[in-house]
Design a protein around this nucleic acid. Structure first.
Lengths: 127, 127
DNA sequence: TTTATTAATGCAACAAAATTGCAATTAAAA
DNA sequence: TTTTAATTGCAATTTTGTTGCATTAATAAA
């Protein structure tokens, strides 16, 4: 167990993610840090922010991992991810639909751990 | 618009996927073609089979894209994917829960194209 | 404030995953 | 059988992600 530190890179990366209206990939984030830190550092900081539950991962429909700070998560200490995500095929925006939770009931014998729910299509801005 | 052809590689790869009880990644498939064709050909054939709607893509929780031919799809000419997928964290099996369809209603303005619904956890065989 | 501890970083090297161009091959129509 | 162009193999390249290690710097303790 290590004691986390607040570094310039970490603060900036969290800022970038929280300021964005969409989920960002590692390369999106790296494009925005503007030379503040190395590519590798972005990977490591993102991992750390996830394990500190400041942000969460969303796997997009193309398999690329994106990161977002949900408003429902960062205010409360509760960290919930059982909401839908929407991936626009036109503008490529990946966003959280935090009000849209999904109730799933599985057959007997399945133990649920995490939900990955993403819908692709055309978002309101592009439609 | 190109006219598709049936090649040995394509037939074999479709066979492999249909014979499997779980969704397979590109490298899973390549491991099974046993030198019949090149690695690159596997990528291209998988893409073609998807666009011909013979198989469908499932993004696993780790971001790795898997391919499966659902029994509900390959018999009918209707190609539906609005069912759940289950990804076992123990045996790594990714399977279709074809009887478990999900009804999602999105806010006005969203046009749904595809659903990517995967739940991770422990499957009955491992639980 | 200064010092000590160790978390975090940069860099280079590596590994894995996926894509592209192009000449050669081959399925299928004519 | 001949012709057409879809498909393939191979090499090269790009993209994505990881690892080791010496250096830097955040934070607690003196």
């Amino acid at each position: 167990m290590t004691i986390p530190r607040n570094t310039r890179a970490k603060e900036r990366i969290l800022e970038i993610i929280l300021a964005s209206d969409r989920a960002l990939s590692q390369s999106d984030v790296f494009g925005q840090v503007d030379g503040l830190c190395d590519r590798v550092t972005v990977y490591r900081v993102l991992d750390r922010l996830v394990s500190e539950k400041k942000i969460h991962k969303i796997v997009n429909v193309d398999g690329i991992i994106n990161y977002a700070g949900c408003s429902s998560c960062d205010t409360a200490n509760l960290h919930q991810h059982d909401h839908l995500h929407f991936s626009c095929v036109r503008c490529k925006k990946l966003s959280c639909l935090e009000n849209h939770h999904v109730n799933v009931t599985l057959p007997l014998g399945y133990a649920v751990q995490e939900l990955f729910l993403t819908i692709s299509g055309i978002c309101p801005s592009c439609g």
